[in-house]
Design a protein around this nucleic acid. Sequence first.
DNA 1: GCCTGTTCCTTCAAGTATAAAATATTTTTG
DNA 2: CAAAAATATTTTATACTTGAAGGAACAGGC
Lengths: 166, 166
Amino acid sequence: MNEPPILLDAETRAQEHPADHRAELRLWLRMLTCTNLIEGEIRARLRRHFGVTLPRFDLMAQLEKAPEGMTLGELSRRMMVSNGNVTGLVERLLESGHVERRAHPSDRRAVVVALTPTGRHVFAGMAAAHAEWIAELTAGLAPADVAQLMRLLGRLKSHVKEVAHG
Amino acid sequence: MNEPPILLDAETRAQEHPADHRAELRLWLRMLTCTNLIEGEIRARLRRHFGVTLPRFDLMAQLEKAPEGMTLGELSRRMMVSNGNVTGLVERLLESGHVERRAHPSDRRAVVVALTPTGRHVFAGMAAAHAEWIAELTAGLAPADVAQLMRLLGRLKSHVKEVAHG
DNA sequence: GCCTGTTCCTTCAAGTATAAAATATTTTTG
DNA sequence: CAAAAATATTTTATACTTGAAGGAACAGGC
């Protein structure tokens, strides 16, 4: 054997020397299952109880943390979705009267979006229910489990950010 | 004080007696961030390297585990997406020649879908790269971390399933 | 056999999502 | 200051996704 140490791109290497990544794959699939299950349940409950979609709730949740409003770009980054997506979401939330647009004080390219008083009030009710639901769905975990998960996921998150961007 | 023990629905109770669910909420947001980051990276790489979308990859991944094929309903359940969604995905994968439809042996309502030889070959390459990518993205975790996460997420998953369905 | 309820799939409308191109404005640079 | 580069948003094309409604086929009891 004694193969020479040739550098290959990931695909070629993967096909010729398939390492054992089963544990990591299974972990990834389980993470995906968990988030899909929770997200699906939250989505259904938001629709049933408040007639609102999850993306709109998420957008309002970002705005709620910024009383002065936020630019579309900031929203896009925080929600981790594309710019065009935010444009459309804001458009629909404008129509329903939950958010309003303001001129940016110093940058005429930018648009600031903020919750309306109505939007703020509506969101408060949804957020309280949402918190209860998340607590209900994660009630299978002891406080120590929650802390442990936070720590491990924190480790994962910072590594993924390194690999993906930096 | 000494309020009477009246039973209220979740929304009302949440607004009037907001319990402290901050830890659980933060955990949920962190989980969401992790999966979104990884999913986004995998989606971009699949597109860049293979010109395929993540949903199509996911569908083919299910079929690869079923050499004899699988009904649309089974696909829908395993992928945790709606029926109509699967119909559309299969339609597009039929056009590209990655999957084929077969008659169900005993149930004329059902449709069986299976990978074509081409689809199987194409998927093999994508799956190998995908496994490498997942390993790369989760490399920030020690083997013990992976095992611990599997355990905790397993606990979460089974509880969520209970709450959501049963 | 028929009736009833269920399951399997498709269709549809609305909404969500990406990537890429286009536009407008700001900032940087030479 | 003018040109170039960078930024903020919108637009476009395409694809994905859901939830709900509908039609076809199955399964059971009568």
